[in-house]
């Protein structure tokens, strides 16, 4: 980065850009972000596996993964796909160890968003060279829960 304007500095001060390593350590094999809508949270709860939720606010210290895990995340933003990955997830993945332990991504979304349906999952998967394991809508149906439960079991064996 070269010269900073005042606005740039304000942006850089955003904790999402700092790969903070001070957050709680988790050995869960499923790590997820869910906004206050709790849609993704409800889906993960139904899976019945031990999972760790990222803090709601970007300014809070993020999680640190201790073992290989699968990431579940919703997509933000609109037409262009800019800002598709929630800032909290960006902050989490800025941590090199968190990135290196990532094995796969599951996306939450709504097909109504057309080309940007589950775009955040695609972006993270491409950047980290891991597969998109599954996509589900809103908070997932019982069939989604069954498929992901079975899929994860096979994936880890």
């Amino acid at each position: 980065m070269t010269t900073l304007t005042v606005e740039d500095r304000a942006t850089t001060a955003d904790p999402a850009d700092a790969g903070s390593a001070e957050g709680p350590v988790t050995d869960a094999s499923l790590i997820y972000f869910s906004s206050v809508s709790d849609n993704t949270h409800r889906f993960v709860e139904k899976l019945g596996v031990r999972a760790a939720r990222m803090p709601l606010l970007t300014k809070e210290p993020t999680l640190r993964a201790a073992q290989p895990y699968v990431l579940v995340l919703p997509t933000y933003g609109g037409i262009t796909g800019q800002g598709a990955v929630p800032r909290q997830v960006v902050k989490f993945l800025n941590n090199q160890q968190n990135r290196s332990l990532l094995r796969g991504v599951i996306g939450a979304g709504n097909t109504n968003f057309g080309e940007t349906y589950c775009l955040a999952a695609d972006i993270v998967a491409a950047k980290c060279n891991v597969p998109v394991l599954y996509r589900f809508e809103v908070m997932g149906t019982s069939e989604d829960v069954d498929r992901v439960t079975r899929g994860l079991e096979e994936f880890w064996t």
Binding site: T111, E115, G151
Partner: peptide
């Protein structure tokens, strides 16, 4: 509706 809705893009399904 969505080009991504095709399940064949997914690893599990």
């Amino acid at each position: 509706l969505s080009p991504n809705a095709d399940e064949n893009h997914d690893f599990f399904s």
